[in-house]
């Protein structure tokens, strides 16, 4: 009996090190977050991923499992982010026909819009004396998360801070575009959708699909193009300026 207790005690020390512990915690928190989200009647300002992340952080704080250990264990799951990023090429290919119908405004709007989406925030933060890590973490704030994570690693920013920035940007872009479109008397779903995708990444795109399928299609196009374009110019520019 005492031997069983002894083994139980050693298990309590080794179990947190196993990868399956990290994966079980992540999946459980994810599904609990989804449940909580629908229970709260799907609030637009609080995506389910934020709820799930709070639950997971609470679990990690309670259990004898450090964040570094957790990251090592969950690596098996996060590796899938690589093939999932590659998979984003499929919807991009499916949206390409929209470029053909409206190529001129898209080609002319995208580069300045994507550059300013990063530029305004980095410029303001720079004027307010932010550290280089903060600047690097804010720069890809309008890019969809998997691509933005790749960019922020290139720029040597902080992934967690970027995630917070993505959340605030997505919610803020959705709010301001909805209000500005009403105020500026803009009703074209192509314009509103594209602006939502370029500035508000996945969160803006979800809102665009609420408006209608045309707005949604242009939002996912804007989101994909902003991601690709920013992944190309931002690291180059960063190396050049920094």
């Amino acid at each position: 009996m005492s031997e069983l207790l002894l083994r139980l005690e050693s298990l309590a020390h080794t179990l947190p090190q196993h990868p399956e512990t990290a994966i079980v915690l992540t999946l459980a928190a994810y599904f609990a977050g989804l449940r909580l989200f629908s229970w709260l009647r799907s609030p637009a300002w609080c995506p389910p991923i934020l709820l799930a992340a709070c639950l997971l952080a609470g679990l990690l704080a309670l259990l004898p499992l450090g964040y570094t250990e957790y990251r090592r264990g969950v690596g098996w799951l996060t590796w899938l982010l690589g093939p999932a990023t590659v998979a984003l090429g499929v919807p991009l290919y499916q949206q390409v026909h929209h470029i053909r119908t409206l190529w001129k405004p898209i080609v002319l709007t995208l580069p300045p819009a994507a550059m300013l989406a990063a530029g305004y925030a980095v410029g303001i933060a720079w004027l307010l004396d932010a550290t280089p890590t903060v600047l690097a973490s804010l720069a890809p704030k309008s890019v969809t998360a998997p691509i933005a994570m790749g960019i922020v690693e290139e720029l040597q920013g902080s992934v967690p801070l970027l995630m917070g920035a993505l959340l605030i940007t997505g919610v803020m872009a959705t709010l301001s575009i909805t209000l500005l479109a009403r105020w500026g008397n803009i009703h074209d779903p192509r314009v509103i959708g594209f602006a939502l995708g370029v500035n508000g990444h996945a969160i803006g795109t979800v809102r665009a699909f609420d408006i209608g399928p045309t707005a949604g299609a242009f939002a996912s196009l804007g989101m994909s193009l902003t991601g690709v374009f920013t992944a190309l110019w931002l690291p180059l520019m960063w190396h050049f300026v920094g």
């Binding site: 389910p48 992340a53 952080a57 990690l60």
Partner: peptide, 19 residues
């Protein structure tokens, strides 16, 4: 895979609480 993206970025999001 695209449907799973939110789950896959969660471990990164959690880091903000620890850093």
């Amino acid at each position: 895979l695209i449907g799973m993206l939110a789950l896959l970025i969660m471990p990164g999001v959690v880091g903000i609480f620890f850093q």
